[in-house]
Structure formats: structure tokens, C-alpha cells
Design a binder for these strands. Structure first.
Lengths: 206, 206
DNA sequence: AACATTTCTTAACCTACATTAAGTGTTCCA
DNA sequence: TGGAACACTTAATGTAGGTTAAGAAATGTT
């Protein structure tokens, strides 16, 4: 049992710097600023299948993933799910629309694999902007990269076949393919699980 | 002929403040900072059909539209065009991927209607970030809003029919519908001009 | 180990949208 | 002002991907 605790805290210690490394890639903070940043966050262990955010509610937090796997998705006509994004180690995830507008959102955020996440509340984020203005730059760059990725995905959906989108997805996120159930991938590239299955069989024949 | 010049300069004078108003919605600049900002930009008159940015080239500038109408689009297999975005009065437009990465882009930027634009080069933008750090916040917010709009469009493409996407587009950009040729709208919502035409006829019958 | 739940596969049939092609306005500019 | 280029329409035919349904694997839970 001791071992368990050891590993748990070791892991937290180890992953604690992941988010700081992430930030350091774009701006440089002093050790004091780093501590201030961390003090405004909360690290949380969450189990698979936990719903962190429900559609219809106002989103209060952004999440940074230390370990594990999350997804955000919307539900259509109470039936069909559409994956907006996945987030694994080192990625941020949130319902940006709701977080920014503070209006009820359309997205669910769900834990796909037991995860350790860092929670940054909207409130604390705003405070941090005032206390460490450099963070404006960091989140600007983060958002810019998100936007570019999203624009590419949009154009891909308009111009590529499902097969081409799948191949692109595999190249772009090789680590995710191992972890993801097929239906999640199908939803992300924008086809039904049935068609996805057929498509994969067809691709194997070549 | 005198009249022409008068109106031309009157218009520039008048629209000059559009971009400042735009900025003032999110951050407040001192008059000096406003002048500094403007001094880093260049106002340009461009005629319809001008191509401001070519795919395959590195994008050096962002454009703010004072007057007129622009679009960005990519071309598939040298045949099919897909509209990424439109920009009319008060909107920014650029090839974000290329502008940020400084790698050759995939987008064309074309003037659809004679326009007056404000050009902000990447270089000057970076300088302005250093001289007026508040601008980080402004462009962060701008990018955030872009991201949210783009995410919604992506989900709409995954979950709505062409008819529903068209209706949404009409509600969201009523002023654009008047100006845009149908084929541009068709391309934006992601269908062929032929299908778009058929769809409109079908919708009228109801 | 055994049951329930979820995921994946296969197959028959269906539909939203694409393609091709031909014809009819419009716009523009020499 | 006339014709070339472009924008829009209509219609026949084609197809990528959806729907429904049923069974087989895999996974989780007790």
C-alpha cells in the first residue's frame, strides 16, 4: 500500500512540470510566476466515464491533461454524438464557446481513460491575465494553433473523402489510434461506426 | 475631378476609425498608442478580382476590411474551390496557418467587391506586440472568437443538412446574402452550385 | 465463471448530394 | 453594342455514405 502512495505522489511530482514545460515552449516565466500559476490551478484524478461538463450548463473551467484521455462532443436530436476534440497528455480541452461567453454550452466533456487533469477556472485565468500579462501571449498562441488546426479540419471535411480523412488522422495522431475505440474515431472523422467498419475492411483488401 | 479626391479622402478619414473602434471594443489604447498602431499599418484600395494572396506562397500580411468584400478559399485538385471565409466591413482576414508558421499556405485571398483594406504585416504585428503588450489581449480575443465560430461551423457541417446550414448562414450573415453570388455561398456551406440551385427551388415551394 | 453491456462487423436497402451535360440569363468590357 | 465570359437552372444518372437490423467479439461487473 505504501508503494501505491509513493507512485501516486511521484507521478504528480513528475507530471507537475508538464504544464510548465508546455508554457515554457512559448513564453518564459520566473520561478515565482510559475508558482503563482500553479497555485491558481487544481490537480484532479478522474475516472473513465466521468462527465466533467454537461451540455446546457455554463462552462467554468479549462482542463489540461497530464495523463489519460478526454473528449468533447455534442449530441444531435438526443441521438447522434459528434466528437469535437480529443485531449491526451499535454493537451488542453474545454468548451471554448461556453467558457468565453459564459452562456450554456453545447458540448459534453467526458473522461475516456482514467486521467489526471489540471483544472484552471475561468475566474483564475482572468486573474492570471492581470497578474502575469505574459500569459495573454501564451493563450493567444495556444488559441491560434487551435484555430489553424480547426480550419484545416474544416477544409478536410469539405474536400476529402472519409478514407482520406482517416488516413490523415492516423498520420497526425498515431498515439491516439491505439487508445481510441473505433466509434470515437468514426465520429471524429464524421461517419457512422457501420460505415467506418466497412471502410476499414475495404482498405485492408488493398 | 476634385470631387472625387474629396470623397476619397473623406472616406479614408471616416473609415480610419473603424479599426480603432474595433480595437476599443476589447481593450483601451491611449491616443498615442492608437497613432502608433495606425503608423504600422497601410491603407490600400483594391479592385474586385485582385488576388491578394496566392496558395503556395508565404503569407506576410493580415487584412482588415474597411469597405468592400473579400474571401479566402483553397483549390482542390486544381478544380474545386472551397471558401474558408468571407470578410466584409469590420472583419479581419488572412491565411492564419501561413501567417503564423511562415510556411507556404493553401489559401487564396481574393477581392470580391472593390475594397478598402488596412494591411498589417506580420513583422509590424510582432513589433506592436512588444510596443503595446495590450494588443496581445486584443488579438487573443479576436482569435478566440474566430475559433468558436469555426468550431460551430465544423459541427454544423457534421450534423446539419445543406438546407439547415444555408438557413443558419442566412440568419447569421444577412448582409452577405445580398452581396454574394450564389456559387460563393454554395461553396461556403459545402455543396455544388448545381445542388444549391436545386435546393433553393425546393425551399421556395414550401 | 457467467451475465450484461458495449463494441464491432456484415449485409440489404436508402438518400443526400455529386457529376455531367445542355440550355438560359447576365454582366462586362472592347 | 455585341459577343465572350460568367452565373444560374434543370434534369438524368451515379455514388459516398446513412439506416436498419441482426449476430459476433470483446469488455466489464458480480
Amino acid at each position: 500500500m505504501k508503494g501505491r502512495f509513493f507512485w501516486r505522489y511521484f507521478r504528480i511530482f513528475e507530471t507537475m512540470s508538464l504544464i510548465l514545460d508546455n508554457i515554457a515552449k512559448h513564453i518564459s516565466l520566473t520561478p515565482e510566476e510559475e508558482q503563482l500559476f500553479l497555485s491558481k490551478t487544481e490537480t484532479r484524478q478522474v475516472k473513465a466515464k466521468t462527465i466533467l461538463q454537461n451540455a446546457g450548463q455554463v462552462c467554468k473551467d479549462g482542463y489540461f491533461v497530464n495523463l489519460g484521455l478526454l473528449r468533447s462532443f455534442s449530441i444531435n436530436d438526443n441521438i447522434v454524438e459528434h466528437v469535437m476534440s480529443f485531449a491526451c497528455e499535454g493537451w488542453w480541452i474545454s468548451d471554448m464557446y461556453s467558457l468565453l461567453s459564459q452562456k450554456p454550452g453545447n458540448l459534453f466533456i467526458e473522461v475516456l481513460e482514467d486521467a489526471e487533469i489540471i483544472v484552471l477556472s475561468k475566474e483564475n485565468q482572468e486573474q492570471l491575465y492581470l497578474e502575469i500579462p505574459k500569459l495573454e501571449r501564451f493563450f493567444r498562441i495556444l488559441t491560434e494553433n487551435s484555430l489553424v488546426a480547426n480550419q484545416e479540419r474544416l477544409m478536410d471535411n469539405l474536400s476529402l473523402t472519409a478514407e482520406e480523412r482517416y488516413e490523415k488522422f492516423c498520420k497526425k495522431y498515431p498515439s491516439l489510434i491505439q487508445k481510441l475505440p473505433q466509434k470515437q474515431m468514426a465520429s471524429y472523422i464524421g461517419v457512422t461506426p457501420e460505415f467506418f467498419s466497412k471502410m476499414k475492411a475495404r482498405m485492408l483488401k488493398k
